[in-house]
C-alpha cells in the first residue's frame, strides 16, 4: 500500500512546492519509489522546482480526461530513477479535477509507487480539497507568523472533516507540522513566533524545522531541490525530515541562533 502524503498549508507562498520537491527527492534517494503530483492546476510550479519543465508533454488533467495514459504523462527524474513527476496543467483550472477520476489515478499509481506526494494548491477551495481528500498523511507547511499559523489551523480542521478518511470514519489523517523559513535570530528578537508557540497553537507533532536560507531560492531557480545541497542548513534540515518520516528519531537542529565569535563579527562571516 502506497502512503499518500499531502503537502498543504492553506496560505500561499509558505514553501509547499519546495517542501514537496525536497521530500519527494529525499525519499527517492533512500531507494523508495516516489511519485510527485502537482495539484496546483493552472499554476504549474513543481516542474520548475524539479527542473523538468522542458519535458512536460502530457499532464494530470490529460490523464484525468483519458487523453493520455499515466505512463505518457509521468516524467522520470533524471537524477533518481525511482522518482516520477506528474505535472499539473497550466492551461486549465482547478475544476478540471473530480474526486472519482483522481481516485482512479491514485489507485493506479499506488500499484507501482511506495509514496505518492500530493503538492496542494493554496487556499481551501476545490483544488486544495481535492489534493487532501485521499491523503493518509498530511504535512502541514507553516511559516512562523500568525496568518500562516491560522490558515494551517483551518486546513487541519478540513483534514479532520472533509477528507475521505473523515467521511468514511476511518483512522484520521496523520498530521505532521513542518515549520519553514524559521529564523532563530528573529525569534530571539521577538519578531517571529517560536517553534513552541506554533506547536502550542496547532498541537500536532513536529516533523521538521527548515531554517530560512539563501540556498532555497538558489535551488528553486536552478531546478535542483534544496535537499541536494547537502552543505546548506535547509538541505540538512530536509534530510532530517526524511529520516523522521521513515520512523527514525532525529534531534532537531537549527533552532538556536548561532553565536557569532569576535572574529566572524569583525569579518562579517
Amino acid at each position: 500500500m502506497a502512503r499518500i502524503i499531502v503537502v498543504t498549508s492553506g496560505k500561499g507562498g509558505v514553501g509547499k512546492t519546495t517542501s514537496s520537491a525536497a521530500i519527494g527527492l529525499g525519499l527517492a534517494l533512500k531507494g523508495h519509489k516516489v511519485v510527485l503530483i502537482d495539484f496546483d492546476i493552472g499554476l504549474r510550479n513543481l516542474d520548475l522546482i524539479m527542473g523538468c519543465e522542458r519535458r512536460v508533454v502530457y499532464d494530470f488533467v490529460n490523464v484525468i480526461n483519458g487523453e493520455a495514459t499515466l505512463n505518457q504523462a509521468l516524467i522520470k527524474d533524471k537524477r533518481v530513477s525511482s522518482l516520477s513527476i506528474l505535472p499539473a496543467s497550466q492551461t486549465r483550472d482547478k475544476d478540471a479535477l473530480n474526486k472519482e477520476n483522481v481516485g482512479k489515478v491514485l489507485e493506479e499509481l499506488g500499484e507501482t509507487y511506495d509514496y505518492i506526494i500530493c503538492d496542494s494548491p493554496a487556499g481551501i477551495e476545490a483544488g486544495a480539497m481535492m489534493a487532501l481528500y485521499y491523503a493518509d498523511e498530511a504535512i502541514v507547511t507553516t511559516n512562523p507568523e500568525v496568518s500562516s499559523v491560522r490558515d494551517s489551523d483551518r486546513i487541519l480542521g478540513m483534514l479532520a472533516s472533509r477528507s475521505r478518511r473523515a467521511e468514511l470514519g476511518l483512522e484520521p489523517i496523520k498530521e505532521h507540522l513542518l515549520l519553514t523559513r524559521y529564523s532563530p535570530k528573529r525569534v530571539e528578537e521577538g519578531e517571529m513566533l517560536s517553534v513552541e508557540d506554533v506547536e502550542d497553537i496547532l498541537s500536532i507533532p513536529l516533523l521538521g524545522v527548515i531554517p530560512e536560507s539563501q540556498a532555497v531560492l538558489k535551488a528553486s531557480n536552478a531546478g535542483e531541490p534544496v535537499i541536494l545541497d547537502t552543505e546548506s542548513d535547509a538541505g540538512k534540515a530536509y534530510q532530517d525530515v526524511i529520516d523522521r518520516l521513515l520512523g527514525e528519531t532525529v534531534e532537531f537542529r537549527f533552532l538556536v541562533a548561532e553565536k557569532k565569535g569576535i572574529f566572524s563579527r569583525m569579518f562579517g562571516g
Partner: peptide, 26 residues
C-alpha cells in the same frame, strides 16, 4: 480534540465541554 479555526460547535440545550483548545477563528 481541538476546535480549529473556522469550525463551529453548538451545544443546543446543553453545556459544552471541550477537552482540547479552541483555536483563534473558531
Amino acid at each position: 480534540g481541538q476546535i480549529r479555526s473556522g469550525q463551529q460547535i453548538y451545544a443546543k440545550g446543553q453545556n459544552l465541554v471541550i477537552i482540547g483548545s479552541v483555536s483563534a477563528g473558531a
